[in-house]
Computed example of a mutant assay.
Amino acid sequence: MLLLALRPSQRPTPEHEALVRALIEPLTVAVENDHRLRELVMLREAAEAENRTLRSKLGRDDLAGSIVGAETGLREVMEQIELVSTADAPVLILGETGSGKEVVARAIHTRSRRASGPFLRVNCGAIPAELVDSELFGHEKGSFTGAVGERKGWFERADGGTLFLDECGELPPAAQVRLLRILQDGWFERVGGEKPRRADVRIVAATHRDLHAMVHDGRFRQDLWYRLAVFPVYLPPLRERLADVPALAAHFAGRAARRLGMPHLSPTAEEVALLLQYPWPGNVRELAAVIERAAILGNGSGLDVARALGVPPAARPLPPSPSPATAAPATSASAPLATLDEAAARHIEQALARAGGRIEGPQGAAAILGLNPHTLRSRMRKLGVDWGRFRVPRGDGA
Score class of each variant (00 low, 15 high):
Thr326Val: 01
Glu82Lys: 10
Pro373Glu: 04
Arg241Glu: 09
Thr162Ser: 06
Ala257Phe: 11
Gly370Ala: 01
Ala105Gly: 05
Asp166Cys: 05
Gly153Cys: 01
His264Ile: 04
Arg75Asp: 13
Asn299Pro: 05
His264Gly: 09
Thr72Lys: 12
Leu340Gly: 00
Ala325Arg: 14
Arg157Tyr: 03
Arg255Gly: 09
Arg36Asp: 01
Gly384Gln: 05
Pro128Ser: 12
Ile24Asp: 14
Ala105Phe: 08
Leu63Val: 00
Val177Gln: 08
Ala335Tyr: 05
Pro118Arg: 13
Leu309Gln: 02
Ala158Ser: 10
Ile24Pro: 07
Ser143Thr: 06
Asp396His: 13
Ile108His: 01
Asp210Glu: 08
Arg381Pro: 02
Ala89Phe: 13
Glu286His: 12
Gly302Ala: 00
Ile203Cys: 11
Ala158Trp: 03
Pro267Arg: 06
Ala294Ile: 03
Gly69Leu: 00
Gly98Trp: 04
Phe390Lys: 04
Ser323Val: 00
Arg114Thr: 06
Leu183Gln: 06
Val148Ala: 12
Val290Pro: 02
Gly361Asp: 11
Glu271Trp: 06
Ala107Lys: 07
Leu37Gln: 14
Trp280Ala: 04
Arg11Ala: 15
Glu189Tyr: 13
Pro324Gln: 09
Leu352Gln: 05
Pro324Phe: 10
Val392Ala: 13
Pro329Gln: 12
Gly300Lys: 13
Asp133Gln: 12
Pro267Ile: 06
Gly146Asp: 14
Ser116Leu: 10
Gly370Tyr: 04
Leu171Glu: 01
Ile203Ser: 12
Val77Asn: 05
Asn123Gln: 14
Pro281Thr: 01
Ala344Pro: 00
Val284Cys: 07
Cys168Ser: 11
Arg259Pro: 00
Ala47Thr: 14
Thr72Phe: 04
Leu287Gly: 06
Arg52Asn: 12
Arg7Gln: 10
Ala47Phe: 14
Glu15Val: 09
Arg111Lys: 12
Gln350Ala: 14
Gln176Leu: 06
Leu235Arg: 06
Pro12Asn: 13
Glu342Arg: 08
